[in-house]
Amino acid sequence: ALASLFSRRLRWSLAGLVACVVALAVALWVVTDIHPLGAFYLTLLDLFAIDDPAIGQSLGRQILQLLSGLVGLLLLPVLLAAVLEGLGTFRTASALRKPPRGLGGHVVLLGLGKIGTRVLTRLRELDIPVVCVEADPEARGLATARRLRVPVVLGDVTQEGVLEAAKIHRSYALLAVTSADTTNLEAVLYARSVRPDLRVVLRLYDDDFATAVYRTLRVAHPRASTRSRSVSHLAAPAFAGAMLGRQVLGALPVERRVLLFAS
């Protein structure tokens, strides 16, 4: 909307200048007794400093010309502020949002690659608040996050302060779905050090390593909810069943495996 480009203070300033121009035009019409359109035209000439001095005319006309010139001087900074504010609004609209200060009860999504982008889209379809963390400023999911107006924290999750910027201490759950096992594991371990009862979903590729990590996390944090999933293990049985011409009815993940129902 046009009103969103400019602040309320700037709109009031523009309205005040328009009111001054109208008042000066009416005063010139009364003082000089010329046509109202002519008075408005002369006022605009004075306002924009177009050289037409009121030499030899009445004192009222000369005073009004000086006042119109003063209003014209006031108009320049207001127009400059309007241009800068409009550019700032467009820049803000095209930039990534930052997490609001009082945000809480959201899901922290780590990674905006192929899997992370699909997860983000699904979470927003369910109207679940999300804050994304991504280290690559050219990640494929940043465009989706910008389109969905989802807050994004750009930075390496292994660096101090990145998860804090995503409000991990007030979040509902952490989804670590990057393509790097060590990054996902380190993020989960750090998040658990901040909040031992945090619900986490951890994506790991190496199955033996994932099994050990999953069981260790469950033992270390028995009060928390932990899930470890392999995207390959989840997708492979359904893919193989479809290739064999089977009608896949459903899949039930059981720890690091998946139970496939097919006809």
Rank of each mutant, 00 (worst) to 15 (best):
E134I: 06
E134S: 13
A135M: 11
P137S: 08
P137V: 12
A139Y: 04
A139T: 10
R140F: 14
G141L: 02
G141Y: 06
L142I: 09
A143P: 06
R146W: 05
L148F: 03
L148E: 07
R149P: 01
R149C: 02
P151W: 00
P151Y: 06
V152F: 03
V152T: 01
V153W: 00
V153K: 05
L154K: 06
G155N: 10
G155W: 04
G155P: 07
G155F: 01
D156S: 15
V157N: 04
V157M: 01
V157W: 06
T158A: 10
Q159A: 15
Q159P: 00
E160P: 11
E160L: 15
G161F: 04
G161V: 07
G161A: 07
G161Y: 09
G161T: 06
V162Q: 00
V162I: 14
A165G: 04
A165Q: 11
A165K: 13
A166C: 07
K167P: 00
K167W: 01
K167N: 09
K167R: 10
K167L: 04
K167I: 03
R170Y: 06
S171D: 06
A173W: 02
A173G: 13
L174I: 02
L174C: 07
L174H: 04
L175R: 07
L175H: 05
S179G: 12
S179E: 15
A180S: 15
D181V: 02
T182F: 08
T182P: 03
T182H: 13
L185E: 03
L185V: 09
E186N: 13
E186G: 05
E186S: 10
A187K: 06
A187Y: 08
V188F: 07
V188I: 10
L189C: 11
Y190M: 15
Y190F: 08
Y190C: 02
Y190K: 15
Y190P: 04
Y190S: 13
A191S: 12
A191E: 05
S193Y: 11
S193L: 08
R195P: 03
R195E: 08
P196T: 10
P196V: 03
D197W: 00
L198K: 01
V200T: 13
V200D: 00
V200M: 00
V201W: 06
L202M: 11
L202N: 07
R203D: 03
Y205V: 10
Y205P: 03
Y205M: 12
D206M: 09
D206H: 14
D207P: 01
D207H: 13
D208M: 11
F209R: 13
A210F: 06
A210N: 01
A210H: 05
T211G: 11
T211D: 13
T211M: 12
T211W: 12
A212C: 08
A212D: 11
V213R: 04
V213I: 13
Y214G: 10
Y214D: 14
T216N: 09
T216H: 12
R218C: 09
V219G: 03
V219N: 09
A220W: 06
P222W: 03
P222K: 00
P222Y: 00
P222I: 00
A224I: 04
A224N: 02
T226K: 01
T226G: 06
R227L: 11
S228I: 12
S228Q: 08
S228F: 15
R229I: 15
V231W: 11
S232F: 11
H233L: 14
H233T: 14
L234E: 07
A235C: 15
A235D: 08
A236R: 11
A236W: 02
P237F: 09
P237M: 13
